[in-house]
Every structure is written in C-alpha cells, then in structure tokens.
C-alpha cells in the first residue's frame, strides 16, 4: 500500500509542480455525419498557464495530435500468379488508427529527440504499430494511409503567439469512421514534454444516415424488404410518369 502511494506521489508530483500548463479548448466536441457531410474543420486553441516568469533563451513548442478510432487491419499483398496479379498474402495487423494527424509549431523531429517521440508516440511512425517496424505490411499501411490523406502532418500548423497563446485548425476528411477522435495537446520546452492535455471529439452519424445504418445492421430483413419495395415503387412510378408525359 505504501509502495502504491509512493508511486502515485511520484507520478502526480511533476504534474502539480509543473511551472507551465496547457489550458485548451476545441471549437466543437461533436461532429455529426449528415447526408451532405463533406469533412469538417476543428479549431484547437488555448493558452499556457504559468506560475513563474517565462524562461529566457529556451524553445517552447506545442504539438497537437488527433487519433481516430483503432481497428484490426488486414493488409493484402499482390503478386503475379498465372500471368495475373492476385492477392497472395494477408497480414493481420494490430489496432491501427483510422486517422492520425500531427500539427506542431515546427517539424516534430526538430522539437523532440526520437526517444521522446517513441515515448509519447508523436509522429505517425511512432504511433502506428511501432513494435512491428520493418514489417513490409506495416510500412505499406503507413504509406497507403499517408497517400490517402488519412495520416497527415502539418509542420508549421500550430501558431504560438507571445509564448502564451496557441491555435491550430485540423481538417477532418469526408470519409470518417464513427467513434471517438482523441485530441492531444503536448507542451514541449527544450525537447522535454512539460504537460499534456487530451479530450475526445465524438463523430457520429445522425438523422437519416443513423437510421439507415441502424436498420441495415439491426433489422436486416426489414431493411432488405424496404429497399425492394422502394425499388419496385420507383420502377413502377417511372414507367407510369413517362407514360403520362408521352401522351
């Protein structure tokens, strides 16, 4: 028991004693996927709270990351068999985020050492299944998601004013997966992480999107029948409408 208290104290102590802390807010904590959803832009802004004067001659940086819901991924590899290109190998990879974005005041490599990067999992390379680094399928996942704009980075995406106020905007693409998007803000001074703050953005389908999705999954029989009835009605309606028009 005493052991636990000591650990807890050691863990809490640096936080409460930190001379600089992040205070942040998001422009929205919830994104609704409606029928005409076309991506969204989240504004992250905040300030640095201090109990002491600003240290001289030292670099202050802010890093903002957004992580989409994680899922087990299947990576397929193609090879030539009998003259045609077919999938010959499947590799299951542990839970990789569907979306990952890093924005910082400078390139992350200039802000922190690679050791700090792997400890805090800041860059996509450190965040995404870093334990399996070197595996071709893992590199492919990283490459494909980067090419599709799902893993992105903005090297000068965060604007820091007077060493106190910061803001950034994060563009979320149109093909979002539902779930919680964890937004993390790291305060870094001279390459050391002083404070971090995280909050979730909830992304959910609403309205007709929600209704259709739920019906299709929870009541598949009814959904199938409904789509058939609608199709039959549309077909009949069309032939009637054009018969009247032609007369």
């Amino acid at each position: 028991m005493r052991f636990l208290i000591v650990i807890l104290a050691l863990w809490v102590a640096p936080l409460s004693l930190a001379a600089e802390q992040v205070v942040a807010a998001l422009s929205q904590n919830r994104i609704s996927i409606t029928a005409n959803f076309d991506g969204s832009e989240i504004l992250v802004f905040g300030a640095i709270k201090r109990t002491e004067a600003v240290p001289e001659n030292s670099a202050l940086d802010v890093i903002v990351t957004v992580t989409g819901p994680r899922k087990l991924e299947t990576i397929l590899r193609k090879a030539r068999r009998f003259g045609i290109w077919v999938n010959v190998e499947t590799e299951r990879l542990g839970h990789a985020p569907s979306f990952y974005s890093v924005a910082a005041t400078r390139p992350v490599e200039d802000i922190v050492a690679s050791k700090t990067d792997s400890l805090w999992k800041i860059t996509a390379d450190a965040q995404i299944l870093s334990a399996r680094r070197g595996l071709a399928a893992r590199e492919a996942l990283l490459r494909i998601r980067t090419d599709n704009g799902l893993y992105r980075r903005a090297n000068a995406g965060v604007v820091l004013t007077e060493n106190t106020l910061f803001n950034t905007s994060i563009a979320l693409p149109a093909n979002l997966v539902e779930g919680d998007y964890i937004t993390r803000i790291l305060l870094v001074r001279d390459g050391a992480v002083l404070d971090d703050y995280s909050t979730a953005i909830n992304v959910q389908k609403v309205g007709i999107e929600r209704w259709l999705y739920n019906l299709a999954h929870n009541n598949a029989l009814l959904y199938g029948l409904l789509s058939l009835v609608l199709a039959a009605l549309a077909g009949w309606g069309a032939s009637e409408a054009f018969r009247i028009l032609r007369r």
Binding site: E73, I75, L76, R77, K78, I84, W85, I144
Partner: peptide, 14 residues
Amino acid sequence: LDLLIRPSELYSIG
C-alpha cells in the same frame, strides 16, 4: 489490363 499490368501499389488494406 488491371489484372495484367503490374499495379503501382502491391499492397492494399482490406
């Protein structure tokens, strides 16, 4: 042709 020509990306996400 898509089957015959070597694809630019050999990997895909299922």
